[in-house]
């Protein structure tokens, strides 16, 4: 039980509650630092903006993602009522951009979650168990890292003959965990050295207990920061797949809007918004995740903080 036992002996609060308080206090502390960090706040504001856009899309967007604007033909120039014009099917591009936020966020967050869970599990086991298992896992990780992920994704997507939403999340998640695994492993290695793990072991805790109760909670903030950065990468991956026409057909995503704008030569026909706006959306959303993730990393990683 390690450090928690001491509190229990005091007879005031349960070990579970003691841990909850300790973790809670640390989270509070981190929250406060985030609040005072300009970079983190800038990122957070961008993220909140896009989250609101995604959640409130049905309220904000004048039209559905795949419904034609009444009385207006395909490829019409921007005008009141359809500020970015209409696409080749007569759909409102402005509405499509708003709806696209949902797919980008959904795919980005879920794919990053998949990658993080796998990466964390691999990193925890590899770093904690050590020995030849660590060696084998890390070599395998090197192989995964050396596969050109984009090509692999494209080939998988093509082999599965166009992916649905779950498919696209799995493809991005399954190819994106190796960096997380490395980060987590090195964190575990340094945590392992720390005194309290030794103490925990001396009292007779099992390995699983040490791993889940001592190492994981301490590595968690860093894993979280890393996940935020992985979301940014996943959003970019989704946009590439969508642009290459390998992503979800039935849903509108920014990458697809750009692809359609490209195919219909949006700039020549005077519809620059068609190409530019969804691109800027990707840039800003990714920018937001990067800002927030880097700032969080800096707050949580004392080595960086010293700089």
């Amino acid at each position: 039980m390690g450090t928690v036992e001491v509190v229990k002996v005091g007879g005031v609060i349960s070990p579970f509650r003691a841990r909850a308080i300790v973790v809670g206090r640390r989270m509070q502390d981190i929250g406060l630092q985030v609040f005072h960090n300009k970079t983190a706040m800038a990122g957070l504001i961008i993220l909140i903006f896009f989250t609101v856009l995604a959640v409130a899309a049905p309220l904000i967007a004048p039209y559905g993602p795949l419904s034609a604007v009444p009385d207006v033909g395909p490829l019409t120039l921007p005008a009141p009522g359809h500020p970015f014009g209409t696409n080749q099917f007569g759909y409102d591009i402005y509405s499509q951009v708003i709806w696209g936020t949902q797919i980008s966020l959904l795919v980005g967050v879920l794919a990053a979650a998949v990658a993080s869970v796998i990466g964390t599990a691999v990193g925890l086991v590899s770093g904690f168990v050590g020995g030849w298992i660590d060696e084998v896992i890390m070599r395998f990780n090197d192989v995964v890292l050396s596969i050109p992920w984009l090509v692999l994704m494209i080939v998988i997507a093509a082999r599965l003959n166009y992916l649905d939403l779950v498919g696209i999340i799995l493809v991005i998640g399954l190819t994106g965990w190796s960096v997380t695994a490395r980060v987590v492993r090195s964190q575990v290695l340094s945590l392992k050295e720390r005194m309290f793990v030794e103490r925990g072991r001396m009292i007779g805790s099992s390995n699983t207990h040490i791993l889940l109760r001592h190492i994981f909670p301490n590595a968690f903030p860093l894993i979280f920061a890393n996940t935020i950065l992985t979301v940014a990468v996943s959003i970019l991956s989704e946009s590439v797949l969508a642009f290459l026409n390998l992503s979800v057909k039935s849903n509108v995503s920014w990458g697809r809007i750009i692809a359609e704008a490209y195919q219909h030569d949006a700039l020549t026909i005077g519809m620059a918004e068609w190409l530019i706006v969804p691109g800027l959306c990707i840039v800003f959303l990714v920018f937001g995740f990067y800002l927030f993730g880097y700032a969080l990393d800096e707050i949580l990683n004392p080595r960086l903080r010293r700089r």
Binding site: A232, S239, V240, F243, I276, G279, V283, Y290
Partner: peptide, 18 residues
């Protein structure tokens, strides 16, 4: 730098191309 870092390369290409 961070801004460019988050830019999809295909989109950057399209913009430069135009």
């Amino acid at each position: 730098g961070i801004f460019l870092y988050g830019m999809p390369i295909f989109w950057l290409g399209l913009v430069l191309q135009s």
